[in-house]
Design a protein around this nucleic acid. Structure first.
Length: 803
DNA sequence: AGTTATTAAACGAGC
DNA sequence: TTTAATAACT
């Protein structure tokens, strides 16, 4: 049993803070500043740094966030920097929220609200909205998620008449994404493309950008690219931003990519008050363009930078830290850092071998139960990490069966559901009439009599007339290819959307200077002062309704509500409930927004736009609430920046961690090791690591090899257990009897049908068995049907009938 | 036109 | 295993 450790000092409230005015009247004595008193020397050095570049190399658990928040408070309270001059960039919205909260405990609520704390992506999204007119975008531009991007690429491929077979959208998109992260535009990409594949990608890239431009849409990478362009091409904007953001803090600097680097440096180049914090050993996003050199070469970019190293760890026990440190020492490309702690030695790190993933889950659940019942660790203090999302299922099942509350960090999953994507697509189309991807998604969802053929005719007309698709809807009557019933349906749909737009104060008096179609609408002086002043155009009618009621109205008017209310395929009403949850999320957003606006007016239109922006940029961890009293399940990537008293890491096996795709590339292998290191260093008191002898992935059970990383761990800090044989006799028998039963069934099924026999299929009718291919549960039969031709069917699923 | 069944295809991490 | 695209049916 581990002695009780006190981990509370990290988050202790700071009392009796003096504000700046009091300070200046009555100077504090050196060493008695409550902002700094409880900091160590290096921490204080970083926290009190005011002007000029600062690099904080912060080891895991070294109190980095604390230093950042204190530094912000110090700047505002002691130095007297206006809070709106401070810009802190974090890796996730959740981290931003936490940082703002922690700062708010040091400074006043009001001051805290004036500080900008956000992620790169949300900063860029807001800047683009604010300066939309300079980028030929409407402020209601769409942000495309992966699914939308994939649609856009498919459109591009279609237009170029390229077969998707050789150019799967996902693969093309990842190539394009890498290019964008390096700020390589289609021209530059084409210039460096020499082989057939990249030359074709160059064409697709160009077309894809055209499609996005047509739709007035940006993908995630474009948010950064466009911001970089904005800053580069508009010196006035850059000057404004530099004036506004005089003190820059960028957290997790090791995971910034080239475009983020460019943006940050452009903002900071003049005043040079740029503070980067991070840890090269925790760089785990190389695959999405993060450039570890940004942090390694910070001192080259800023030779006068002050460098502070935080090496004392306040988070973990000695054992955990020793194990993590031993692991990371195996990376060759690395600057060594000596992590140390004054914490207790604690329990050894447990490394356990289990039989399979079910046993693994069961073991973890047992351990958690013990920590909860006997060591009084709340459920919220425990977490399960894994390399790939698909490992979450088994542990979920086990936790559910055990009745243990859990939450999964999969914030985006909610917005990926069809019903939610549909509902959001309506909102997108309302604020962005150019968004064809979302328009085609909802034009006949739910079914309202607008067929595929009708949509095709409309699209053709839009291309022919060189008009946005939505504008063509109104002239649908002139299209001969569309019958009267469809015309009525289209007009009804267009009318409905226009009604919603009216409710937002958007008017479209036929091709007049309707604000939403008019990109050259008068430039209202948008200063960086107020990022919340979103749109240039103000609502022309006083609309009393709220965001919540607007969303509800769209759900009802569109028929989505009714459709899912009566959906027979969803008897539980789960989808309807999800729509309900969307409505409450709108309500929640509205409440938060009102609070942060502090009485300043907003239009409904602005609210919808801001809401759409927010839901486009939620990250997986954003939804995790530690005080929820639930075990947290997440990927190792999502775990960055978090900490839990008890941590279990699943599937520490070769092929999973390190992932099989990293095996051939030494750099990727080191990133895998860093990923493992990140996982280890999240643990405060107990770290358990498990690997199974057999693992079933995609229905295929295969023996595994323990992760090579396990061999790198110092045995004197470990407690190694192999429980793969315990009770596995019964479990093993169950398992094999299960498999055997399946095989038996398949054999029987195979035996049942012999080549030459006549069978009947509910759909295909009469047929004759040609061959039987016994493959266990996957046993297939080739059958020649009288009318349907030769088909290969899986016996288990095909409801065949012997004749 | 719209729904439902069947088959094929994807499976690394995410803003 | 899940999801997406396609084919068949009502």
């Amino acid at each position: 049993m581990a002695p009780d450790l006190d981990f509370s000092h990290e988050r202790g409230p700071i009392r009796h803070l003096l504000n700046y005015r009091e300070m200046s009247q009555e100077p504090m004595q050196v060493g008695s500043d409550p902002l700094l008193d409880d900091l160590t020397e290096p921490q204080r050095e970083a926290a009190t740094h005011v002007d000029g570049p600062l690099l904080v190399l912060a080891g895991a658990g070294s109190g980095k966030t604390r230093v950042i928040t204190r530094r912000i408070a110090h700047l505002v309270l002691r130095v007297g920097i206006p809070p709106w001059n401070v810009l802190a960039i974090t890796f996730t919205n959740k981290a931003a929220g936490e940082m703002r909260e922690r700062v708010a405990k040091l400074v006043s609520e009001r001051q805290a609200r004036a500080i900008t704390v956000c992620t790169f992506h949300s900063l860029c999204a807001r800047l683009i909205r604010q300066y939309a007119h300079k980028l030929e975008l409407p402020p209601g531009y769409s942000i495309y998620d992966t699914a939308d991007q994939s649609r856009a690429v498919k459109n591009a491929l279609e237009a170029l008449e390229i077969n998707t077979g050789n150019f799967p959208p996902a693969k093309v998109l990842s190539t394009i994404s890498s290019a964008k992260n390096e700020l390589i535009d289609p021209d530059a990409y084409a210039a460096s493309a020499h082989d057939f594949y990249s030359k074709t990608v160059a064409k697709i890239y160009r077309k894809y950008q055209e499609v996005l431009a047509q739709n007035k849409a940006l993908d995630f990478d474009d948010l950064l690219v466009q911001t970089a362009n904005l800053i580069r091409n508009h010196p006035d904007v850059l000057a404004e931003l530099r004036e506004r953001y005089q003190y820059l803090l960028i957290d997790e600097y090791q995971d910034t990519n080239h475009s983020q680097f460019i943006i940050a440096n452009a903002l900071g180049a003049q005043h040079r008050n740029i503070c980067a914090t991070g840890d090269p050993d925790q760089s785990i996003y190389g695959w999405r363009g993060a450039n570890i050199r940004n942090i390694l070469e910070f001192e080259t970019h800023y030779p006068d930078a002050k460098v502070v190293r935080l090496e004392q760890n306040y988070r973990s026990t000695k054992n955990i830290l020793a194990v993590a440190d031993a692991l990371i020492r195996n990376n060759k490309h690395r600057k060594h850092k000596s992590l140390w702690t004054e914490n207790e030695a604690g329990d050894p790190v447990r490394v356990v071998t289990v039989y399979d993933e079910r046993k693994e889950a069961q073991w973890v659940v047992e351990q958690f139960q013990d920590w909860h019942d006997n060591k009084k660790v709340p459920w919220g203090g425990m977490a399960v990490f894994y390399r790939i999302n698909s490992l979450s299922r088994v542990i979920e099942d086990a936790l559910r069966t055990a009745g243990i509350p859990y939450q999964i960090a999969r914030g985006t999953a909610f917005y990926e559901r069809k019903e939610i994507k549909d509902a959001v697509a309506y909102l997108r189309v309302i604020v962005n009439p150019f968004d064809e991807v979302n328009l085609t998604r909802i034009i006949n969802t739910p079914a309202r009599g607008i067929s595929e053929a009708t949509v095709e005719a409309l699209r053709a007309a839009a291309v022919a007339q060189n008009k946005p698709l939505f504008e063509v809807l109104r002239s649908v009557a002139s299209l001969t290819a569309v019958n009267a019933r469809a015309v009525a349906a289209v007009l009804r749909f267009a009318k409905m959307v226009e009604e919603w737009r009216k409710a937002l104060g958007i008017f479209e008096n036929n091709n007049a200077r309707s604000p939403i179609f008019d990109l050259n609408a008068p430039d209202t002086p948008t200063s960086a002062d107020d990022l919340h002043s979103i749109e240039n155009q103000k609502s022309k009618i006083e609309n009393p309704s709220t965001l919540r009621s607007f969303v509800e109205r769209v759900l009802v008017d569109s028929g989505l509500h009714e459709h899912y209310r009566t959906d027979k395929t969803d008897p539980e009403g789960e989808r309807l409930a999800n729509l309900g949850e969307l409505v409450s999320s709108a309500q929640q957003f509205e409440d938060d927004l009102e609070a942060s606006l502090d009485g300043r007016p907003t239009t409904l239109h602005e609210k919808v736009t801001a809401y759409l922006e927010q839901i486009s940029l939620v990250s997986d961890v954003d939804t995790v609430n530690p005080d929820q009293g639930a075990v947290t399940l997440m990927t190792l990537h999502a775990a960055k920046g978090l900490e839990f008293p008890v941590v279990a890491m699943l599937g520490v096996e070769d092929g999973l961690l390190p992932h099989s795709r990293a095996q051939t590339n030494p750099h990727e292998m080191e990133e895998e090791r860093r990923l493992c290191f990140v996982g280890f260093t999240r643990a405060q008191r107990m770290l358990m690591v498990s690997h199974a002898r057999y693992r079933t992935i995609f229905g295929q059970t295969t023996p595994t090899i323990p992760s090579r990383f396990l061999n790198e761990l110092p045995s004197n800090h470990l407690q190694v257990e192999d429980i793969s044989n315990e009770e596995s006799w019964t479990a093993g028998e169950d398992r094999f009897s299960g498999i055997n039963a399946q095989r038996e069934a398949a054999r029987e099924a195979a035996a049942q049908y012999r080549p030459g026999e006549l069978v009947r299929h509910p759909q295909f009718g009469l047929g004759r068995v040609l061959t039987i291919n016994p493959m266990g549960a996957q046993t297939r039969a080739q059958i020649a049907f009288n009318t349907a031709g030769v088909k290969t069917l899986i016996l288990q699923y095909a409801r065949l009938e012997k004749i």
